[in-house]
Amino acid sequence: MKIIVLVKQVPDTYGERKLDPSTGLLDREASDTIVDEINERALEVALRYKDKNKGTEVVALSMGPASATAALRKALSMGADSAVHVLDDGLSGSDLGWTSTALAAAVAQTGYDLIIAGNESTDGRGGVVPVMLAEHLNLPHLSFLDSVGFNEDVVSGERGTESGSLAAHAPLPAVVSVTERAAEARFPNFKGMMTAKRKPLAVLTLSDLGLDPAQAFAGVGRSVIKTTIERPARTAGRKIIDEGNAGVELAEFLAAGRLI
């Protein structure tokens, strides 16, 4: 069984994250970048299956600038067998449509039985790339899974709904995305970190994928950023130390603001 895990390099949520106001695009210089935590959980789902089923091949696949290599090396150090990096200047500033088109071509070329992604990235928070990939590939999808199980033939899982939960299954090949409830990710061990450097990491350009941007994206609607405005930072208001009367003072504050 061959499992592709989608990996995205994102700005660390522990630091300041910035957009370039002139382009609306991520300011990659402004923050430390890491593998999105949700991708590590997606990878964990694949690795747990691999731990129990010898002969399973796990491929980490990412689209991003040259620096995304670090995210893929991290995935390799956790236990992925190989990595694929979709890297091309023509993909800079891709919207959801371009991203999913390029990813679909890359996973099709790589080959797969199952594609596992995180439910949504911590930066874009779109949560739609996995289903867009499924539509490109004419595959069933199961997205936002809180729990997931699979064998060589079928994947099943549960996800939340507006009013509870639902359980569903799909035959393989399929695309699934998992939430942070699906699995707690392992840490790379020393052996993993040493062997990661020797594992294969293929770089694919748009031309390697047979995609000519002028043709592949012609006639496709694009979302275009018009303006980007930074919201002024919130400032601290009044801060009191409780000396036995803070509850009453707080009630007064709420009443003054007509909040009670």
């Binding site: 496709v220 609607g221 694009r222 979302s223 275009v224 950023i225 018009k226 980007t228 405005i229």
Partner: peptide
Amino acid sequence: YTVESAVDG
């Protein structure tokens, strides 16, 4: 940030 986008095409 507040970002405003349009869709072309």
